[in-house]
Amino acid sequence: MAHRIVVVGAGYAGLSAAKRAARGLGGRVAVTVVNPADVFVERVRLHEVAAGAPAVDLSLAETLADRRVAFLRGTVTELALAGRRVAVATTGGSHELEYDTLVYTAGSTARTGCVPGVAEHALTVSGAADTAAARARLADLTDGAWVTVVGGGATGIEVAAELAETHPGLRLRLVTDEELGGWLSPRGRAHVRSALERLGVQVRDHVEVVEVAADGLVLDDGQVLSSDAVVWSVGFDVPSLAARAGLEVDRSGRVRVDGTMRSYSHPEVYAAGDAAAMGGALGGELRMACATALPSGRQVADSIAARLAGRTPRPMRFSYAFQCISLGRRDGLIQFLHGDDRPRDRVLTGRAAALFKEGIVRSALTFTRLPGPLLPS
């Protein structure tokens, strides 16, 4: 009987794990992927989609079928770890899947519970449904309307720049409680700031939002910023599913895994991508990013294959090289990094950086669809 692998989630990590395992192990495994949506969400382009660009239309059932991977559209409601079962709610009722190995790649969602009013009044850009809602709301705004983007990380910067370039009639501001681009090199920070200024985005850093209302937001000094729309881009949360099931998780709810992506508490479970707390080869934890989701998904497949063959899998040896930030369609920043994610002095900017990032984004989608052969152990 084939070894049953159930993959929870079909983002970059889940798809690469499922397709790589099915390709490398063939008839020795039966792989099933469970996901709430029936299309792949190209998350690194969601800022473009929010501004009006079309979303990628990649059917999960079709792209998985070419590797003979089964697909079930539904929401996982329970992980019964003792019995190795997954409960799934679908439009047609409830289902239960049995597994020999579980791959947990449930991803992350926008962090909306940290400030009053965010969940009720703010727009987010973290998945297909919330991005579609943000796109519709922003498209309805008339020239002169104020849009406030909260969050000075890569997502907030990309959203603000994309909206400013695509909708020049809108008035954009970006608010963050830290220094804008504080994790970048001095040259990188300077370019981000100058690009946003060129696009007409007002930047307010070192200020904290304490409440979001229907007509704007309130800062920690009591100042009220009127806004016709607020886009909230302040970090990500992970589903509570893993913690509720009893998997060992970190303080944020991510599954704690070893270097082979195997759960510390349940050896029949692997986790990858945003839902996993992964240690870097050079120390520290890997951040949530497509750059870490893809290799961790591939690592899961390689680790499973090695253990099924009675071999000890090699741990993942990932190190950072660069980070890409879009600043509209004609500008960008490529921040080159040390392997441990510290910024180097070297950056690439302007049109060349925009083309560089576009190539990386396209290659990420290609690697998701064609994850390559298993590595020998």
Rank of each mutant, 00 (worst) to 15 (best):
M1I: 02
A2C: 01
V6L: 03
V6W: 03
G11F: 02
A18L: 01
G24T: 00
R28M: 09
A30T: 04
N35S: 12
V39K: 08
R45A: 14
L46H: 05
H47E: 06
G52P: 09
A53D: 15
A53Y: 10
R67T: 10
F71V: 01
R73I: 09
T77S: 14
E78C: 05
G83I: 00
G93E: 08
L102K: 09
V103G: 15
V115R: 09
P116M: 10
G117P: 04
E120M: 04
A134F: 00
A136Y: 04
A139I: 12
T142N: 11
T142K: 14
T148V: 13
G153N: 13
T155M: 06
E158V: 07
L163D: 05
P168D: 07
R173P: 04
R173F: 04
G181E: 03
G188T: 03
D205W: 11
E208N: 01
V210D: 06
E211R: 14
D221M: 06
V231W: 00
D237C: 08
P239H: 09
G246D: 08
R262H: 06
H266S: 05
P267K: 03
V269A: 13
D274Y: 12
A277G: 05
G283S: 07
T292H: 10
Q299I: 01
G310L: 11
P313W: 11
C324R: 05
G328L: 12
R329H: 15
R329F: 12
D331L: 06
D341P: 12
P343V: 05
K357R: 15
A364P: 02
L365E: 14
T368L: 11
R369Y: 12
G372W: 09
G372T: 00
L375F: 05
L375V: 04
